[in-house]
Design a protein around this nucleic acid. Sequence first.
DNA 1: CGTCCACGTCTAC
DNA 2: TAGACCTGGACGG
Length: 407
Amino acid sequence: MPEGPELHLASIFVNRMCSGVVFTGPVQKSEVSKNLEVPFSCKAYTITASSRGKEVCLTLTSQKSDPTLGGSRRPKTGQVDQVQPQTMNVVFRFGMSGYFRFTVEEELPKHAHLQFYTNEKPCRVLSFVDPRRFGSWQPNGTWQAARGPCVMFQYQSFRENVLSHLSDRVFDRPICEVLLNQKYFNGIGNYLRAEILFRSNIPPFVMARTVLEGLKSKDEPEEKKNLVELSSKVAVKTKVKKEEKMEVNLEEEAENPDLLRLCNLVPLEVIKLGGKGYDPEKNDYSGFKMWLRCYEVDGMRSIRDHNGRTMWFMGAPGPMTPKGSKSPKAKKRLKEDPDVKHRIIKKTSTVIQTKPKAIRNEKEGRRKYVSRQEVRGTPRRPGQSRASCSAEAPRRRSGRVSQNTPS
DNA sequence: CGTCCACGTCTAC
DNA sequence: TAGACCTGGACGG
């Protein structure tokens, strides 16, 4: 599930698996991939990773100061040894299905389109696996210039980038569509936009500028200077002992995060799920599925946005709802299974308002990799309507946007 | 068997 | 604003 959190977890995965591991030889690309060759070959090199929004950067670093020639496919002319880079960055985008795996050579996964070989006895391979091949990589790459700051790890600049460009025409669009614009929301994807808007109680098809203009004033007070990169609620509290008024603001910020803050907090929650959100080895997404409150959740509504992407939401869609848009086929693919009609309503440790989710789609419980004992506890409410959802769990108003939206 | 759907960009009318 | 780019899983006949 490659959105910002999965890309970051992929970078953690690479760093964990490749720590202390020595790679060797050329980087191999599959025949079928249309991406560029990675012209790096070295007798001994290491791999580290970092992420930014929906990109991962692998850094290949030769261990010795004089890299050796070995790239069979390097078409370099003349002098050879000097041409080899000592370090190379390769920047990946994951498309719809990309991920990294680290296996022995004999167990190379299908669709492993870029491979890094270790110098070990039974050779192991770090590989970029991408069945649909929408992913891409760039040798000697940099973070894509057109993408904005990372919603997860560059929160302050992300926020400023949005709020200082609200005159941009892209904010004429519905908020749910703008949330997929990587120039401003680098890291947000289809499930995150649903989860974020659901928690903020903002209808998806309200004009983005209308939603975001309200957030500007909150940033204006000069007391805000002290706020830089609120890393945690605790940090915030200790920092603001002095100003009573500020304490209130921060409390409100912590207890009732606005839309942009949710664009930061919600992906961070997925990262905290850890392997449950991204773990190629144990192919277990049950934790992640349990975490979802809206996306593909039974009882939630869905319609196609102007770009044909499915928007999951609860309640009113908002004034900019596409005309003639219909909800995609109701997701009732899988048959009834009495064992999985229940799910746990867990309390989260975040300050974000938790609300009982609508009951899970039956589909979840039937996935082969879902352990059933995890999915029980709460009586199912068949055919639950959104009205009943709201009634049993009124969410906090997000403050300044909710009144803009017709119901 | 066939159809629909999927966690995302890209470029071309 | 369509398509193009792809494979594969779920579901229906």
